[in-house]
Design a protein around this nucleic acid. Structure first.
Lengths: 230, 230
DNA sequence: AAATATAGTGAACATCGTTTACATTATAAT
DNA sequence: ATTATAATGTAAACGATGTTCACTATATTT
């Protein structure tokens, strides 16, 4: 892994472009992201950026990958810090970390979980990054189940057979987890996304004001009860 | 309410602009919405549109209001069609209607619940429209509670006092509903939004393929159990 | 019939993403 | 050390965008 001087400089420039882009997204939003503005702020001209990213879309793809990596790392850190705790606490920690990352990185969250852009296709590398984040949640749930720490209540609505067989076929495709574990992970993910997205958009603030985090914690508690974490 | 000939023509043009805008949003997404393209398709020049909407942002605001109105009407229709049924079925019907409206109107859903744009402030009229949609859900839950059709399970996590008092102060501000009803409505809304948004972005399709609606129905069943609808 | 308000056009400005041709500079080869 | 080559950047230009301004044509009102 020898890196020449030129390669190091190139790497630095690549990073500077990304960080400048995030700065502008935070200030003006994704739609207003402008190559010319980035170049201006970096003290160079717009066409020069094309030596690094062949188009605006490719830059956005790089930003998406960057955001997913940060997101996944944050979840992993939360999981690792709760390593000594029991499964419920680990689950709670990762769920809360999901929300907190969004609070700390609203622009990044909006970019990867915001409105899809018709015609824009996400790179396979970016999709792989997205799965990595989800896997943190799914693996944790899987371990808790294997340890017998999850007992859904008696009146938990049974999964319809079509859904179960769909989950089964995922396992064949190499995904970890039994049907119930996969379902719990998907349901958790959906719920967290809903709360977080509504919060970021400002729809919850009108109702909850300074109690948004309290609401999120309550929602997590409800998930714990619903799935029978112990 | 006398309408002159000119006013009628103006009204027609206003509507044609909106419908042309939706057509383009459906084809190319919100970011690509172009005043010039709208004018072109309508057989006029771009500056002419400024007699109707003073800027692109004002047009977007009108689109948001239009989307919210359609959304609310759809929920109300679903509620009214299930008028004879019991409270659980009404709740199920409205929840499913939420998801189905998004499936039928992906562009509209993305516009009102997608990424927030920094610097863009929603009109009070648009916010009022958003509350109207939420109220359909909240009023329904409130009626079910008044009729004694909601009994959360014994191990339902108790609402923290700060959250309860926050809900209480909402009632003082003129919002209907007791704390528990408000909370159930918010929790339902968040969950539905999470499922729907992930579905529209395509994150769920990789897992669920043709079982997305089955997953949504399952999530609704879980909400019914979680809150103790009967 | 004259005065006025409304609707629309055409030209222009600043901005955007992107391409092309060209200059500069750092590395590699001789 | 000099030459060839590859990488990095610039300047100019194209077509597109939102928006403003000056102007014309039309419809309504007086």
């Amino acid at each position: 892994m020898t890196t020449t001087r030129r390669e190091r400089i190139r790497e630095t420039t690549l990073e500077e472009i990304i960080s400048t882009a995030w700065k502008q997204i935070a200030e003006q939003g994704v739609p207003a992201l402008s190559l010319r503005a980035i170049a201006r702020e970096m003290g160079m001209t717009a066409p020069g950026l094309y030596r690094y990213y062949p188009s605006r879309d490719d830059l956005v793809t790089a930003l998406i990958k960057d955001a997913f990596d940060s997101f996944t790392r944050h979840l992993e850190t939360a999981r690792d810090e709760a390593f000594d705790a029991n499964h419920v606490e680990q689950y709670r920690a990762v769920c809360l970390a999901y929300y907190q990352w969004a609070v700390l990185n609203p622009s990044r969250y909006a970019l990867i979980f915001g409105s899809p852009v018709p015609g824009y296709q996400m790179t396979e590398a970016a999709y792989a990054s997205s799965r990595k984040g989800f896997l943190v949640l799914q693996n944790l749930i899987e371990k808790a189940r294997a340890a017998g720490s999850i007992h859904p209540p008696a009146d938990f609505p049974p999964l319809p057979p079509e859904l179960v067989s769909r989950y089964e076929s995922l396992r064949i495709l190499g995904m970890p987890g039994d049907p119930v574990g996969t379902h719990i992970a998907l349901a958790t993910w959906s719920t967290l996304h809903g709360v977080t997205a509504l919060m970021l958009y400002g729809y919850l603030e009108g109702f909850l004001s300074d109690q948004v985090e309290g609401f999120v914690l309550q929602m997590i508690d409800q998930l714990v009860m619903l799935f029978g974490f112990e």
